[in-house]
Design a protein around this nucleic acid. Structure first.
Lengths: 123, 123
DNA sequence: ATATGTGCAAACTGTTTGCACACGA
DNA sequence: TCGTGTGCAAACAGTTTGCACATAT
């Protein structure tokens, strides 16, 4: 993976903020430093960075994918009202400490990604 | 919520299968019984059924949303190879029993949905 | 030197929506 | 009857991609 100016700026932007951005938000932010960067380049780099494990994605029930430069395992909370995404270190099924902070939890989704038994046996 | 033939067929299809389908797959299945149903109607009904808590969604890193008629809390496993979605009753952070079955877990995402403290205070 | 990346614009895909008509309660 | 739902087609939004040129190594 070649280290281009564009890729560097995208990665350092995501690492500098402890927050979650979609592709267009990242595009707008990076454009302040590289005015002629294209949205296609942003998408291509985000894809590569995810593939490489440099950043992670947050799949929500919004239409767009959010990207996170903080890659240690953690839990995301999506507010249906302001659509902000919050980080929590809590894992597991007890989210009592989160509700205690004043958050109301409507639903909770856990998704694992990987290779199933059958596919593992085939390869 | 009015009980139309279309809504009935969509819901009974999802309840009859312990599997996960996207809108087009549901459209194709229901079309065998209601040949002139439209994809728009399928989407509208899926939205209403989710809103009503009759079915749940599975957000994956595929482009499309999957729908599940089995609404008890459970964990989903998405195979990156065959893209099948598997159900597991396991919750929490220890997925040892899943790996013991021959599944390889690459990543694990937990997302909570609800209302944040600030928005709760506003309302 | 050359494989990889870029900007641009067009294409693609999943989903939503406006409209006139149909139907369930 | 009347408010909700439907089929259809067009619109939309997020994302991907083909191309010719540029750049990192």
């Amino acid at each position: 993976m070649r280290l281009t100016h564009q890729r560097e700026e995208i990665l350092s932007f995501l690492r500098s903020k402890r927050a979650h951005y979609n592709a267009v938000e990242i595009y707008d932010a990076v454009r302040e430093r590289i005015p002629n960067i294209s949205l296609g380049t942003v998408y291509r780099n985000l894809g590569k960075l995810v593939e490489d494990g440099e950043i992670i994605t947050v799949e929500t029930d919004n239409r767009s994918i959010y990207y996170d430069g903080y890659i240690a395992p953690h839990t995301h909370f999506v507010c249906k009202c302001c659509s902000q995404i919050f980080d929590f270190e809590e894992e597991g099924q007890s989210f009592k400490s989160i509700s205690d902070k004043g958050f109301t939890i409507d639903k909770h989704r856990t998704v694992l990604y990987g290779t199933c038994t059958e596919c593992n046996e085939k390869n």
